[in-house]
């Protein structure tokens, strides 16, 4: 990755094809701090009124900070569960021989291909039954469960790239199976863990359908649901507000992405490099 010369032609080309997206985001930002006539296109003068939701509750929509906190708890919990379970399950699937291992692998892949919407009614009924409906815990478990097949599969791929001999050498050096996993194998798939963590964080942050149906209450509302609520509110047609909230909602993800995109690429490259 060192001493790569900037390729101006390529940069220009990429800039041109991504221009529509960049311009849209830029426009979104400008719009959110300006006043526009309802039928106009051009921003007229500067205002911070669109951002008022940060310090006052919009009628009937609850507190934005509460929703932000819920979303953060939701996303980080999903990340923890997915990372811990995938990194252990992936190891088992990659290294241990147990009955029906290959069938299990196929089954995991099958689960991954299910769109979560198709399961939503039965999940709803199940959560009602066990009393986790309209609780953060409930929706966290559901989201984590739906993310797991992908996570397990990705982790197994990373474990597969770690040579057997390293583990044998570890055992030979006196380490227990757990020590071998923890001290020798895990550090080598750190890029994979990082990528999976980022990936599932973003998946959690942007999740909409599950929280919409499973945690509709104002105490447990997530940001995505908060934003959607504003937009379908008939008494409110304040586009400036929508834009500001939308911007507020995607900001963490964009900042996060900016700093971690190189790690994220790993998930497609697969395996440890350098």
């Amino acid at each position: 990755m060192e001493d790569r010369k900037p390729n101006w032609l390529l940069t220009l080309f990429l800039l041109i094809i991504s221009a529509p997206i960049l311009i849209m985001y830029f426009w979104l930002f400008i719009d959110s701090i300006s006043e526009i006539n309802t039928d106009g296109l051009w921003p007229e003068h500067f205002t911070l009124r669109n951002w008022r939701f940060l310090y006052e509750d919009i009628d009937g929509h609850g507190n934005v900070w509460k929703a932000t906190l819920n979303t953060a708890i939701f996303a980080t919990s999903v990340v923890s569960i997915v990372v811990i379970l995938s990194s252990t399950a992936g190891y088992a699937l990659s290294r241990l021989r147990f009955p029906y291992r290959s069938q299990f692998l196929g089954f995991v892949l099958l689960l991954h291909s299910f769109p979560s919407v198709t399961l939503i009614i039965s999940i709803f009924l199940m959560l009602r039954l066990i009393g986790l409906y309209d609780t953060l815990v409930g929706v966290i478990l559901v989201k984590a469960a739906l993310e797991l097949p992908f996570g397990i599969w990705i982790m197994k791929g990373f474990y597969d790239t770690v040579p057997w001999e390293i583990e044998m050498a570890g055992l030979q050096d006196g380490a227990s199976r757990f020590q071998v996993w923890y001290k020798l194998v895990l550090p080598q798939i750190m890029p994979g863990i990082a990528a999976l963590a980022i990936f599932s964080f973003m998946a959690g942050w942007s999740e909409f359908v599950l929280p919409l149906i499973l945690v509709p209450g104002s105490e447990t509302k997530l940001l995505s649901v908060y934003l959607a609520g504003l937009m379908i509110d008939d008494y409110l047609s304040d586009f400036g507000l929508f834009k500001a909230v939308g911007l507020f909602y995607i900001m963490p993800v964009m900042i996060f992405y900016l700093f971690t995109q190189d790690k994220l690429m790993n998930i497609y490259g697969g395996g440890t490099k350098g």
Partner: peptide, 10 residues
């Protein structure tokens, strides 16, 4: 044991 592929911890 010295393994054929050395098996050092990278």
């Amino acid at each position: 044991v010295v393994f054929q592929s050395f098996a050092l911890y990278p």
